[in-house]
Design a protein around this nucleic acid. Structure first.
Lengths: 207, 207
DNA sequence: GGCCGCATACCGTCCAGTAGGTATTCTACC
DNA sequence: GGTAGAATACCTACTGGACGGTATGCGGCC
Protein backbone atom coordinates (compact mmCIF):
# COMPACT_ATOMS: atom_id res chain seq x y z
CA UNK A 1 0.00 0.00 0.00
CA UNK A 2 1.81 2.97 1.30
CA UNK A 3 0.49 5.50 -1.11
CA UNK A 4 3.00 8.24 -1.10
CA UNK A 5 1.89 11.76 -0.42
CA UNK A 6 3.78 13.01 -3.42
CA UNK A 7 1.77 10.76 -5.70
CA UNK A 8 -1.47 12.16 -4.39
CA UNK A 9 -0.17 15.64 -4.90
CA UNK A 10 0.67 15.11 -8.56
CA UNK A 11 -2.64 13.35 -9.07
CA UNK A 12 -4.41 16.38 -7.68
CA UNK A 13 -2.30 18.71 -9.78
CA UNK A 14 -3.22 16.78 -12.91
CA UNK A 15 -6.88 16.71 -11.96
CA UNK A 16 -6.92 20.43 -11.32
CA UNK A 17 -5.12 21.31 -14.52
CA UNK A 18 -7.36 18.97 -16.49
CA UNK A 19 -10.47 20.54 -14.99
CA UNK A 20 -9.24 23.99 -15.96
CA UNK A 21 -8.38 23.05 -19.51
CA UNK A 22 -11.58 21.09 -20.00
CA UNK A 23 -13.51 24.04 -18.64
CA UNK A 24 -11.86 26.46 -21.01
CA UNK A 25 -11.71 24.38 -24.17
CA UNK A 26 -14.14 21.52 -23.85
CA UNK A 27 -13.25 17.85 -24.06
CA UNK A 28 -12.35 17.45 -27.70
CA UNK A 29 -10.44 20.70 -28.04
CA UNK A 30 -8.48 20.16 -24.87
CA UNK A 31 -5.06 18.65 -25.46
CA UNK A 32 -3.11 16.48 -23.13
CA UNK A 33 -0.07 18.62 -23.79
CA UNK A 34 -1.72 21.70 -22.35
CA UNK A 35 -2.87 19.76 -19.31
CA UNK A 36 0.64 18.45 -18.78
CA UNK A 37 2.14 21.87 -19.14
CA UNK A 38 -0.28 23.50 -16.76
CA UNK A 39 0.10 20.76 -14.18
CA UNK A 40 3.88 20.93 -14.40
CA UNK A 41 3.98 17.20 -14.90
CA UNK A 42 5.28 14.93 -17.61
CA UNK A 43 3.39 12.54 -19.77
CA UNK A 44 4.61 9.49 -17.93
CA UNK A 45 3.33 10.83 -14.64
CA UNK A 46 -0.07 11.58 -16.07
CA UNK A 47 -0.49 8.27 -17.80
CA UNK A 48 0.58 6.53 -14.64
CA UNK A 49 -2.45 7.95 -12.85
CA UNK A 50 -4.94 8.00 -15.70
CA UNK A 51 -4.93 5.49 -18.47
CA UNK A 52 -6.49 7.68 -21.11
CA UNK A 53 -7.89 11.11 -21.82
CA UNK A 54 -11.37 9.77 -21.37
CA UNK A 55 -10.60 8.28 -17.98
CA UNK A 56 -9.14 11.60 -16.92
CA UNK A 57 -12.27 13.41 -17.99
CA UNK A 58 -14.44 10.96 -16.11
CA UNK A 59 -12.33 11.51 -13.02
CA UNK A 60 -12.82 15.27 -13.35
CA UNK A 61 -16.56 14.80 -13.65
CA UNK A 62 -16.77 12.59 -10.59
CA UNK A 63 -14.43 14.68 -8.44
CA UNK A 64 -16.28 17.81 -9.40
CA UNK A 65 -19.57 16.30 -8.44
CA UNK A 66 -18.41 15.11 -5.05
CA UNK A 67 -16.42 18.27 -4.42
CA UNK A 68 -19.58 20.25 -4.73
CA UNK A 69 -21.85 17.85 -2.92
CA UNK A 70 -19.55 18.01 0.08
CA UNK A 71 -20.28 21.68 0.53
CA UNK A 72 -23.97 21.07 0.81
CA UNK A 73 -25.26 20.80 4.33
CA UNK A 74 -29.03 21.01 4.58
CA UNK A 75 -30.25 24.04 6.41
CA UNK A 76 -32.88 23.38 9.00
CA UNK A 77 -35.42 25.72 7.46
CA UNK A 78 -38.22 24.87 5.15
CA UNK A 79 -37.44 22.48 2.33
CA UNK A 80 -37.95 25.20 -0.24
CA UNK A 81 -35.50 27.45 1.55
CA UNK A 82 -33.03 24.59 1.46
CA UNK A 83 -33.55 24.32 -2.26
CA UNK A 84 -32.83 28.00 -2.69
CA UNK A 85 -29.74 27.75 -0.55
CA UNK A 86 -28.46 24.81 -2.52
CA UNK A 87 -28.83 26.87 -5.64
CA UNK A 88 -26.64 29.60 -4.22
CA UNK A 89 -24.10 27.13 -2.92
CA UNK A 90 -23.94 25.65 -6.39
CA UNK A 91 -23.52 29.07 -7.90
CA UNK A 92 -20.60 29.88 -5.66
CA UNK A 93 -18.97 26.54 -6.32
CA UNK A 94 -19.31 27.30 -10.01
CA UNK A 95 -17.67 30.66 -9.55
CA UNK A 96 -14.82 29.53 -7.35
CA UNK A 97 -14.01 25.84 -7.74
CA UNK A 98 -12.21 24.91 -10.96
CA UNK A 99 -13.06 21.25 -10.49
CA UNK A 100 -16.74 22.01 -10.36
CA UNK A 101 -16.45 24.26 -13.40
CA UNK A 102 -14.65 21.62 -15.42
CA UNK A 103 -17.04 18.96 -14.29
CA UNK A 104 -20.04 21.01 -15.33
CA UNK A 105 -18.63 21.84 -18.72
CA UNK A 106 -17.93 18.20 -19.42
CA UNK A 107 -21.37 17.29 -18.20
CA UNK A 108 -23.11 19.83 -20.37
CA UNK A 109 -21.06 18.82 -23.36
CA UNK A 110 -22.91 15.68 -24.16
CA UNK A 111 -21.47 13.08 -26.42
CA UNK A 112 -18.83 10.87 -24.95
CA UNK A 113 -19.92 10.28 -21.38
CA UNK A 114 -23.61 9.60 -21.49
CA UNK A 115 -24.05 7.66 -18.24
CA UNK A 116 -22.41 10.08 -15.78
CA UNK A 117 -24.07 12.98 -17.53
CA UNK A 118 -27.51 11.55 -17.12
CA UNK A 119 -26.67 10.83 -13.52
CA UNK A 120 -25.70 14.45 -12.96
CA UNK A 121 -28.90 15.82 -14.46
CA UNK A 122 -31.00 13.25 -12.67
CA UNK A 123 -29.18 13.89 -9.42
CA UNK A 124 -30.18 17.53 -9.45
CA UNK A 125 -33.72 16.64 -10.30
CA UNK A 126 -33.88 14.05 -7.56
CA UNK A 127 -32.63 16.43 -4.91
CA UNK A 128 -35.18 19.03 -5.99
CA UNK A 129 -37.89 16.43 -6.14
CA UNK A 130 -37.15 15.20 -2.64
CA UNK A 131 -37.25 18.68 -1.18
CA UNK A 132 -40.44 19.50 -3.01
CA UNK A 133 -42.04 16.37 -1.61
CA UNK A 134 -41.20 17.46 1.90
CA UNK A 135 -42.55 20.91 1.10
CA UNK A 136 -45.76 19.41 -0.18
CA UNK A 137 -46.17 17.36 2.96
CA UNK A 138 -45.67 20.52 4.97
CA UNK A 139 -48.47 22.12 3.00
CA UNK A 140 -46.25 24.83 1.56
CA UNK A 141 -46.95 24.20 -2.12
CA UNK A 142 -49.96 25.03 -4.20
CA UNK A 143 -52.28 22.07 -4.46
CA UNK A 144 -52.07 20.02 -7.60
CA UNK A 145 -48.42 20.71 -8.32
CA UNK A 146 -46.75 18.02 -10.39
CA UNK A 147 -43.64 17.43 -8.36
CA UNK A 148 -41.65 15.64 -11.01
CA UNK A 149 -42.42 18.33 -13.57
CA UNK A 150 -41.56 21.11 -11.17
CA UNK A 151 -38.29 19.48 -10.21
CA UNK A 152 -37.38 19.04 -13.87
CA UNK A 153 -38.18 22.67 -14.62
CA UNK A 154 -36.06 23.87 -11.72
CA UNK A 155 -33.16 21.67 -12.76
CA UNK A 156 -33.41 22.86 -16.35
CA UNK A 157 -33.75 26.49 -15.42
CA UNK A 158 -30.73 26.37 -13.13
CA UNK A 159 -28.73 24.66 -15.86
CA UNK A 160 -29.65 27.24 -18.44
CA UNK A 161 -29.21 30.25 -16.24
CA UNK A 162 -25.79 29.07 -15.28
CA UNK A 163 -24.89 28.58 -18.92
CA UNK A 164 -26.20 31.95 -20.05
CA UNK A 165 -24.45 33.69 -17.22
CA UNK A 166 -21.22 31.98 -18.14
CA UNK A 167 -21.38 32.94 -21.78
CA UNK A 168 -22.56 36.49 -21.29
CA UNK A 169 -20.74 37.65 -18.17
CA UNK A 170 -18.38 34.83 -17.25
CA UNK A 171 -20.72 34.03 -14.35
CA UNK A 172 -20.34 37.41 -12.74
CA UNK A 173 -24.09 37.98 -12.60
CA UNK A 174 -24.89 34.41 -11.67
CA UNK A 175 -26.02 35.20 -8.13
CA UNK A 176 -28.30 37.95 -9.35
CA UNK A 177 -29.76 35.68 -12.00
CA UNK A 178 -30.50 33.02 -9.44
CA UNK A 179 -32.34 35.57 -7.33
CA UNK A 180 -34.35 36.64 -10.38
CA UNK A 181 -35.20 33.03 -11.10
CA UNK A 182 -36.59 32.37 -7.66
CA UNK A 183 -38.48 35.65 -7.66
CA UNK A 184 -40.23 34.62 -10.82
CA UNK A 185 -40.64 30.94 -10.06
CA UNK A 186 -41.73 30.74 -6.45
CA UNK A 187 -45.14 32.41 -6.78
CA UNK A 188 -46.23 29.60 -9.06
CA UNK A 189 -44.92 26.98 -6.66
CA UNK A 190 -45.44 27.87 -3.02
CA UNK A 191 -48.43 29.32 -1.27
CA UNK A 192 -48.33 32.92 -0.13
CA UNK A 193 -48.01 32.16 3.57
CA UNK A 194 -44.93 30.04 2.93
CA UNK A 195 -43.59 32.48 0.38
CA UNK A 196 -43.59 35.23 2.93
CA UNK A 197 -41.16 33.30 5.11
CA UNK A 198 -38.66 32.60 2.35
CA UNK A 199 -35.55 34.58 1.70
CA UNK A 200 -35.22 34.69 -2.06
CA UNK A 201 -31.95 36.54 -2.23
CA UNK A 202 -28.86 35.11 -0.71
CA UNK A 203 -28.95 35.21 3.06
CA UNK A 204 -25.37 35.20 4.24
CA UNK A 205 -22.67 36.51 1.96
CA UNK A 206 -20.16 33.80 1.20
CA UNK A 207 -17.27 33.85 3.66
CA UNK B 1 -22.00 36.52 -60.87
CA UNK B 2 -24.32 33.91 -62.20
CA UNK B 3 -24.74 31.61 -59.27
CA UNK B 4 -25.48 28.21 -60.65
CA UNK B 5 -28.36 26.17 -59.32
CA UNK B 6 -26.14 23.13 -58.92
CA UNK B 7 -23.75 25.13 -56.81
CA UNK B 8 -26.52 26.18 -54.48
CA UNK B 9 -27.62 22.58 -54.15
CA UNK B 10 -24.21 21.33 -53.12
CA UNK B 11 -23.79 24.27 -50.82
CA UNK B 12 -27.03 23.32 -49.11
CA UNK B 13 -26.01 19.68 -48.95
CA UNK B 14 -22.77 20.61 -47.26
CA UNK B 15 -24.53 22.94 -44.86
CA UNK B 16 -27.05 20.29 -43.91
CA UNK B 17 -24.46 17.57 -43.44
CA UNK B 18 -22.30 19.92 -41.43
CA UNK B 19 -25.21 20.88 -39.20
CA UNK B 20 -25.95 17.22 -38.54
CA UNK B 21 -22.39 16.30 -37.72
CA UNK B 22 -21.84 19.38 -35.58
CA UNK B 23 -25.07 18.58 -33.77
CA UNK B 24 -24.01 15.02 -33.08
CA UNK B 25 -20.35 15.52 -32.25
CA UNK B 26 -19.77 19.14 -31.43
CA UNK B 27 -17.38 21.44 -33.23
CA UNK B 28 -14.00 20.06 -32.24
CA UNK B 29 -14.93 16.40 -32.53
CA UNK B 30 -16.61 16.83 -35.89
CA UNK B 31 -14.37 15.97 -38.80
CA UNK B 32 -14.51 17.39 -42.26
CA UNK B 33 -14.27 13.87 -43.65
CA UNK B 34 -17.52 12.85 -42.02
CA UNK B 35 -19.22 15.97 -43.29
CA UNK B 36 -17.94 15.31 -46.79
CA UNK B 37 -19.05 11.72 -46.68
CA UNK B 38 -22.52 12.55 -45.44
CA UNK B 39 -22.95 15.35 -47.94
CA UNK B 40 -21.78 13.14 -50.79
CA UNK B 41 -19.33 15.81 -51.84
CA UNK B 42 -15.59 15.94 -52.20
CA UNK B 43 -13.14 18.06 -50.35
CA UNK B 44 -12.56 20.38 -53.25
CA UNK B 45 -16.24 21.14 -53.52
CA UNK B 46 -16.56 21.89 -49.85
CA UNK B 47 -13.51 24.12 -49.71
CA UNK B 48 -14.75 25.96 -52.73
CA UNK B 49 -17.83 27.05 -50.81
CA UNK B 50 -16.33 27.40 -47.34
CA UNK B 51 -12.79 28.42 -46.80
CA UNK B 52 -12.32 26.69 -43.46
CA UNK B 53 -14.00 24.56 -40.86
CA UNK B 54 -14.64 27.61 -38.76
CA UNK B 55 -16.30 29.47 -41.61
CA UNK B 56 -18.50 26.45 -42.22
CA UNK B 57 -19.52 26.38 -38.57
CA UNK B 58 -20.31 30.08 -38.64
CA UNK B 59 -22.46 29.55 -41.71
CA UNK B 60 -24.34 26.79 -39.91
CA UNK B 61 -24.93 29.06 -36.94
CA UNK B 62 -26.23 31.90 -39.08
CA UNK B 63 -28.37 29.74 -41.36
CA UNK B 64 -29.83 27.99 -38.34
CA UNK B 65 -30.72 31.28 -36.75
CA UNK B 66 -32.41 32.69 -39.80
CA UNK B 67 -34.06 29.38 -40.65
CA UNK B 68 -35.79 29.45 -37.33
CA UNK B 69 -36.56 33.15 -37.28
CA UNK B 70 -38.38 32.76 -40.58
CA UNK B 71 -40.93 30.47 -39.01
CA UNK B 72 -41.88 33.02 -36.41
CA UNK B 73 -44.86 35.09 -37.30
CA UNK B 74 -46.28 37.04 -34.38
CA UNK B 75 -49.71 35.96 -33.37
CA UNK B 76 -52.17 38.77 -32.83
CA UNK B 77 -52.92 37.78 -29.26
CA UNK B 78 -51.46 39.18 -26.13
CA UNK B 79 -47.71 39.66 -26.08
CA UNK B 80 -47.30 36.99 -23.45
CA UNK B 81 -49.21 34.51 -25.56
CA UNK B 82 -46.89 35.36 -28.42
CA UNK B 83 -43.94 34.62 -26.18
CA UNK B 84 -45.38 31.23 -25.31
CA UNK B 85 -46.06 30.47 -28.95
CA UNK B 86 -42.54 31.41 -29.93
CA UNK B 87 -41.28 28.98 -27.34
CA UNK B 88 -43.24 26.17 -28.90
CA UNK B 89 -42.20 27.13 -32.40
CA UNK B 90 -38.61 27.06 -31.24
CA UNK B 91 -39.13 23.67 -29.64
CA UNK B 92 -40.51 22.22 -32.85
CA UNK B 93 -37.71 23.69 -34.87
CA UNK B 94 -35.28 22.02 -32.49
CA UNK B 95 -37.01 18.71 -32.91
CA UNK B 96 -37.31 18.81 -36.67
CA UNK B 97 -34.80 21.10 -38.33
CA UNK B 98 -31.25 19.79 -38.44
CA UNK B 99 -29.88 23.23 -39.22
CA UNK B 100 -31.46 24.66 -36.09
CA UNK B 101 -30.19 21.76 -34.03
CA UNK B 102 -26.65 22.16 -35.29
CA UNK B 103 -26.79 25.89 -34.86
CA UNK B 104 -27.91 25.56 -31.28
CA UNK B 105 -25.27 23.04 -30.39
CA UNK B 106 -22.55 25.26 -31.80
CA UNK B 107 -24.01 28.22 -29.99
CA UNK B 108 -24.16 26.45 -26.64
CA UNK B 109 -20.65 25.15 -27.09
CA UNK B 110 -18.87 28.33 -26.23
CA UNK B 111 -15.27 28.84 -27.10
CA UNK B 112 -14.51 29.64 -30.65
CA UNK B 113 -17.35 31.84 -31.83
CA UNK B 114 -17.94 34.34 -29.10
CA UNK B 115 -19.61 37.16 -31.04
CA UNK B 116 -22.38 35.20 -32.79
CA UNK B 117 -23.05 33.26 -29.62
CA UNK B 118 -23.57 36.35 -27.55
CA UNK B 119 -25.80 37.65 -30.30
CA UNK B 120 -27.91 34.50 -30.15
CA UNK B 121 -28.37 34.66 -26.41
CA UNK B 122 -29.00 38.39 -26.50
CA UNK B 123 -31.41 38.00 -29.38
CA UNK B 124 -33.64 35.70 -27.41
CA UNK B 125 -33.50 38.01 -24.43
CA UNK B 126 -34.32 41.02 -26.57
CA UNK B 127 -37.34 39.37 -28.13
CA UNK B 128 -38.62 38.37 -24.72
CA UNK B 129 -37.89 41.80 -23.36
CA UNK B 130 -39.79 43.53 -26.14
CA UNK B 131 -42.85 41.34 -25.67
CA UNK B 132 -42.76 41.83 -21.92
CA UNK B 133 -42.64 45.58 -22.42
CA UNK B 134 -45.75 45.44 -24.52
CA UNK B 135 -47.38 43.23 -21.90
CA UNK B 136 -46.50 45.69 -19.20
CA UNK B 137 -48.00 48.56 -21.18
CA UNK B 138 -51.15 46.49 -21.56
CA UNK B 139 -51.24 46.09 -17.78
CA UNK B 140 -50.91 42.36 -17.91
CA UNK B 141 -47.88 42.00 -15.68
CA UNK B 142 -47.55 42.29 -11.95
CA UNK B 143 -46.42 45.75 -10.95
CA UNK B 144 -42.78 46.18 -10.20
CA UNK B 145 -41.51 43.43 -12.47
CA UNK B 146 -37.94 43.93 -13.62
CA UNK B 147 -38.33 43.40 -17.34
CA UNK B 148 -34.70 42.82 -18.15
CA UNK B 149 -34.34 40.31 -15.34
CA UNK B 150 -37.49 38.48 -16.32
CA UNK B 151 -36.42 38.30 -19.95
CA UNK B 152 -33.04 36.94 -18.91
CA UNK B 153 -34.62 34.31 -16.71
CA UNK B 154 -36.94 33.20 -19.48
CA UNK B 155 -34.10 32.99 -21.95
CA UNK B 156 -31.97 31.03 -19.53
CA UNK B 157 -34.75 28.70 -18.56
CA UNK B 158 -35.63 27.92 -22.15
CA UNK B 159 -31.98 27.27 -22.89
CA UNK B 160 -31.58 24.91 -19.99
CA UNK B 161 -34.81 23.06 -20.48
CA UNK B 162 -33.96 22.46 -24.08
CA UNK B 163 -30.54 21.16 -23.07
CA UNK B 164 -31.84 18.88 -20.35
CA UNK B 165 -34.50 17.52 -22.61
CA UNK B 166 -31.91 16.79 -25.25
CA UNK B 167 -29.59 14.93 -22.94
CA UNK B 168 -32.24 12.97 -21.08
CA UNK B 169 -34.80 12.14 -23.73
CA UNK B 170 -33.33 13.33 -27.01
CA UNK B 171 -35.86 16.19 -26.93
CA UNK B 172 -38.87 13.89 -26.93
CA UNK B 173 -40.36 15.51 -23.83
CA UNK B 174 -39.41 19.02 -24.87
CA UNK B 175 -42.95 20.17 -25.52
CA UNK B 176 -44.13 18.88 -22.17
CA UNK B 177 -41.24 20.56 -20.41
CA UNK B 178 -42.06 23.87 -22.05
CA UNK B 179 -45.63 23.57 -20.82
CA UNK B 180 -44.37 22.82 -17.31
CA UNK B 181 -42.10 25.83 -17.45
CA UNK B 182 -44.86 28.22 -18.35
CA UNK B 183 -47.19 26.72 -15.76
CA UNK B 184 -44.64 27.41 -13.09
CA UNK B 185 -43.38 30.73 -14.37
CA UNK B 186 -46.44 32.67 -15.43
CA UNK B 187 -48.07 33.11 -12.01
CA UNK B 188 -45.06 35.12 -10.90
CA UNK B 189 -45.17 37.23 -14.03
CA UNK B 190 -48.68 38.03 -15.20
CA UNK B 191 -51.72 39.11 -13.25
CA UNK B 192 -54.54 36.63 -12.72
CA UNK B 193 -56.96 38.28 -15.14
CA UNK B 194 -54.42 38.04 -17.95
CA UNK B 195 -53.32 34.60 -16.88
CA UNK B 196 -56.85 33.30 -17.30
CA UNK B 197 -56.81 34.22 -20.96
CA UNK B 198 -53.52 32.50 -21.76
CA UNK B 199 -53.17 29.07 -23.23
CA UNK B 200 -50.16 27.58 -21.55
CA UNK B 201 -50.10 24.33 -23.44
CA UNK B 202 -49.62 24.27 -27.14
CA UNK B 203 -52.69 25.48 -28.98
CA UNK B 204 -52.62 23.98 -32.43
CA UNK B 205 -50.78 20.74 -32.97
CA UNK B 206 -47.98 21.15 -35.43
CA UNK B 207 -49.08 20.36 -38.98
C1' DG C 1 17.28 -4.07 -3.43
C1' DG C 2 12.87 -3.81 -5.02
C1' DC C 3 9.00 -1.44 -6.41
C1' DC C 4 6.52 2.85 -6.75
C1' DG C 5 6.45 6.99 -9.20
C1' DC C 6 7.87 9.31 -12.73
C1' DA C 7 10.87 10.90 -17.12
C1' DT C 8 11.99 10.75 -22.19
C1' DA C 9 11.79 9.53 -26.65
C1' DC C 10 9.24 7.77 -29.99
C1' DC C 11 5.21 5.90 -33.01
C1' DG C 12 1.18 5.44 -35.85
C1' DT C 13 -2.82 7.87 -36.94
C1' DC C 14 -5.66 11.28 -38.35
C1' DC C 15 -6.93 15.70 -39.58
C1' DA C 16 -7.46 20.49 -41.64
C1' DG C 17 -6.06 22.51 -45.40
C1' DT C 18 -3.84 23.02 -50.32
C1' DA C 19 -2.10 22.53 -55.11
C1' DG C 20 -3.14 21.90 -59.27
C1' DG C 21 -5.87 19.91 -62.78
C1' DT C 22 -10.59 18.91 -64.89
C1' DA C 23 -15.37 19.29 -65.82
C1' DT C 24 -19.47 22.12 -66.28
C1' DT C 25 -22.03 26.09 -67.32
C1' DC C 26 -22.63 30.76 -68.70
C1' DT C 27 -21.63 34.75 -71.99
C1' DA C 28 -20.69 36.78 -76.30
C1' DC C 29 -20.33 37.06 -80.77
C1' DC C 30 -21.15 35.38 -85.25
C1' DG D 1 -28.00 28.38 -82.75
C1' DG D 2 -23.45 27.06 -82.57
C1' DT D 3 -19.10 27.65 -80.76
C1' DA D 4 -14.92 29.98 -78.44
C1' DG D 5 -13.43 30.97 -74.23
C1' DA D 6 -13.93 32.59 -69.73
C1' DA D 7 -15.66 31.99 -65.36
C1' DT D 8 -17.53 28.90 -62.17
C1' DA D 9 -17.73 24.56 -59.87
C1' DC D 10 -15.64 20.61 -58.59
C1' DC D 11 -12.12 16.47 -58.13
C1' DT D 12 -7.71 13.88 -56.63
C1' DA D 13 -3.68 13.45 -54.42
C1' DC D 14 -0.96 15.10 -51.25
C1' DT D 15 1.37 17.49 -46.97
C1' DG D 16 2.81 18.92 -42.66
C1' DG D 17 1.84 18.93 -38.22
C1' DA D 18 -0.30 17.72 -33.98
C1' DC D 19 -2.30 14.50 -31.11
C1' DG D 20 -3.13 10.44 -27.99
C1' DG D 21 -0.85 6.78 -26.48
C1' DT D 22 3.30 3.54 -25.43
C1' DA D 23 7.91 1.42 -24.47
C1' DT D 24 11.49 1.61 -21.85
C1' DG D 25 14.51 3.43 -18.63
C1' DC D 26 15.77 5.48 -14.11
C1' DG D 27 15.94 7.50 -9.43
C1' DG D 28 14.45 7.68 -4.77
C1' DC D 29 11.58 6.14 -0.64
C1' DC D 30 10.24 1.46 1.83
Amino acid sequence: MARQARALATRQAVLLAAAEVFDERGYAAATMSEILERAGVTKGALYFHFRSKEELALAVILEGQSAWLVTWEPSSDSPVQTLIDIGYAFAHALQDDPLVRGSIRLTIEHGSFTPPQIAAYQGWSDVARGLLERAQEAGELHPGIDLAAAAAVIQGAVTGIQLSSQVLTDRQDLIQRMADLWTLLLPGLVQPHALARLSVTERAPAP
